[in-house]
C-alpha cells in the first residue's frame, strides 16, 4: 500500500502540565478533505500549529509527501507543499490584492535574491496571480489595498494566496470564521471545487460546513482522535454523539 500524503504518528504536545495533543495519529490521503472537529480546547489549533511548523512537537513524527518533516521550520514545510490559512486573517494589508497573491507565487518561483528587475511588471508573477484571483472571484478587486477589503473578501484572498503556492495539502483553520451566511456558502462552494486537486485539512466549528465538505472526519477530544470516519459513520457513532455532537443536537 502506498503511503498517504500526510501521516501523523503519536504526535504529542504539552504546555507545562496541560497535554494539548496526546499521542495523536492521523492520515490524510492525497486530494481528500479531512475535517477535524472537536470541542473548544480539544487541541485543534495546536495540531494545525504543529503541522505547519509554528509549534515544535514534544514527540511523534510527521511524514509528508514521503519526507519526514517533523523538524522542518515553517518556511521549508511551505516550500514542500504545505500551505495554511490562519484562524485570524493574515494578509499584507498595505499591499494591493494582486501584490498579495504575487508574493505568494514568488515564494514558490525559486529564490528571491533578484535585485534588479521590477517584480510588479514581471509576467511570470502577475499572470498566475491574475489567474488565482479569477478562480477565487476577486479579480475585479485586484488593485484595492488588501486592508480595505471586506472581511469575507480578505478570507477569500487568504485562500487565493494559499492556493497560489500550488500546495498538495492545505491547512485551513476556520476559513469561514466571522463570515455571513452568503459568504460562507460561497466559501463552501469554492472549497468543494478544490476537492480532488488539493488535500485539505479543515478545522471548522460550523457542522453544516463540515458535513457538506468533508470526505472524512476526525473527532478530537482531549488531544486524542476518538473517532475517524466518513461523515455518515461519525454522525452515527454513539460515542461521538454523546461526547460532542450530542451537545449541539
Amino acid at each position: 500500500m502506498t503511503e498517504p500524503l500526510l501521516r501523523v504518528t503519536d504526535l504529542t504536545k504539552a504546555f507545562g502540565g496541560l497535554i494539548a495533543i496526546d499521542h495523536l495519529s492521523l492520515d490524510i490521503a492525497a486530494g481528500e478533505i479531512h475535517a477535524v472537529i472537536g470541542p473548544n480546547g480539544a487541541g485543534k489549533t495546536t495540531f494545525i500549529a504543529q503541522l505547519s511548523g509554528a509549534l515544535r512537537s514534544d514527540s511523534g513524527t510527521i511524514r509528508f509527501d514521503g519526507v519526514d518533516i517533523t523538524n522542518f521550520p515553517i518556511a521549508r514545510r511551505a516550500r514542500h507543499g504545505l500551505a495554511r490559512s490562519f484562524q485570524i486573517t493574515s494578509i499584507f494589508r498595505d499591499f494591493s490584492v494582486e501584490d498579495n497573491v504575487a508574493l505568494a507565487i514568488q515564494a514558490h518561483a525559486g529564490h528571491s535574491f533578484r535585485f534588479w528587475r521590477a517584480a510588479r511588471s514581471d509576467p511570470a508573477l502577475r499572470r498566475p496571480a491574475r489567474e488565482a484571483l479569477e478562480r477565487i472571484g476577486l479579480v475585479e478587486r485586484r488593485n484595492v489595498l488588501a486592508g480595505a477589503l471586506a472581511h469575507g473578501e480578505q478570507r477569500q484572498l487568504e485562500l487565493a494566496m494559499a492556493l497560489a503556492t500550488k500546495p498538495s495539502l492545505l491547512l485551513l483553520d476556520e476559513p469561514a470564521a466571522g463570515m455571513g451566511a452568503t459568504e460562507t456558502s460561497a466559501m463552501v462552494t469554492l472549497l468543494a471545487g478544490l476537492k480532488g486537486d488539493v488535500a485539505i485539512l479543515l478545522v471548522e466549528h460550523d457542522m453544516d460546513t463540515v458535513f457538506a465538505l468533508a470526505d472524512r472526519i476526525s473527532v478530537l477530544v482531549g488531544g486524542r482522535a476518538m473517532a475517524t470516519g466518513t461523515p455518515a459513520q461519525i454522525r452515527d457513532d454513539p460515542a461521538v454523539r454523546q461526547a460532542y455532537l450530542g451537545e449541539e443536537a
Binding site: 515553517i74 493574515s90 508574493l103 514568488q106
Partner: peptide, 28 residues
Amino acid sequence: RLINSRFGMVIRGSRSNEARMRALGYPV
C-alpha cells in the same frame, strides 16, 4: 530598482506581515 525587485518585495512583505511570509515559504 532594489525596492521594486523581487528581493525588495520580500523585504517589504516581511515588514508588512512576517509570519505570513514564513507561512508562504520565505526564509525571511
